[in-house]
Simulated scan of single mutants.
Amino acid sequence: MISKLCNEIFERSVKDYHIHDNVDAVENNPYKPSSLEHLLYKKNWIDTVQWHLEDIIREPNIDPVMALKIKRRIDESNQERTNLVEYIDSYFLDKYKNVKVQANAKFNTESPAWAIDRLSILMLKIYHMQREAERTDATEEHRLACSNKLHILLQQQLDLSTAIDELLQEIEEGKKYMKVYKQMKMYNDPSLNPVLYTNKN
């Protein structure tokens, strides 16, 4: 099942990141380049670094210059994340390109890779909620509340994993078909963002 592979790799990536717990740590992807495993690990590494950048930028007394620098870095990360999700979807499009689609096949509104994207974020939520549930410097009330939230997150992980596996199974059987729309983000494109193309020097 693809979800089992995803969850195992995402968990490894999150744990690897937290060895140093530094947004500037070098990604040491252990999987063969261009393999699905490599893409999944890289996907979660991007998410994990961005998770911590989002934490840092919320520091109440952060230097404005540093905040802007981090915001630009988050924007770049979002673009990289989107590109990688689309690349993963390309992997599935190629894998199932010869499947005979049934006449009554249905279109799924979410592509496999965007569902996997949510699974990657869920792994981060689970990891950090687990840490909060085990904090020795927090109140018992805090730990209990986080334990309850962790239980819900784990159920969400199970449900989403099942949904991803079922979606791919139905695509493989021709009961559903993939249609991937490029995100077409405009804010990073100097030809589409008015602030950028009206301020050219």
Rank of each mutant, 00 (worst) to 15 (best):
H142L: 09
R118D: 13
K175E: 09
Q157K: 12
A113I: 02
A138T: 03
I126K: 11
Q156P: 07
D165T: 00
K125F: 07
L168M: 13
E141I: 06
E140T: 06
H151G: 06
H128M: 07
W114Y: 11
M123D: 11
H151K: 15
L160V: 00
E132P: 01
Q169K: 09
L124S: 13
H128R: 09
A115Y: 04
E166M: 14
R143L: 00
M123R: 12
T139L: 10
Q157F: 02
M178Q: 00
A138L: 06
N148D: 03
S120M: 15
A115N: 06
I121D: 10
W114M: 09
T139K: 12
Q169P: 01
D117E: 11
D159H: 15
M178H: 02
K175Q: 05
E173M: 08
E166K: 13
L122F: 06
K149I: 03
E132A: 12
R135Q: 05
L153K: 15
E173V: 03
K175W: 01
R131Y: 05
E140M: 11
A163R: 13
K176A: 06
S161G: 12
Q169R: 11
R143W: 05
A145G: 01
H142E: 09
E170L: 15
M178G: 01
Q156R: 07
L160Q: 09
R131W: 01
L122R: 08
D137A: 08
K125A: 04
D137K: 05
E140V: 05
L124C: 04
L150Y: 03
A113K: 08
Y177R: 04
E172Q: 01
D165Q: 03
M178V: 01
E132Y: 05
T139E: 10
L168F: 04
I152Y: 05
L160W: 07
I121A: 12
T162H: 07
L154P: 03
S147W: 05
T139Y: 06
L160S: 02
E170H: 13
L124V: 00
I171L: 14
A163L: 04
E132Q: 09
A138N: 11
I164L: 14
T162F: 08
D159L: 12
Q169L: 08
K176E: 07
Q156C: 09
Q157P: 03
Y177I: 00
Q130K: 11
D117G: 08
R118I: 01
M178K: 02
M123T: 03
L158E: 12
R118G: 07
R135L: 07
R143N: 09
C146H: 10
T162P: 00
E170W: 10
L119D: 14
A163F: 07
K176R: 14
R143G: 08
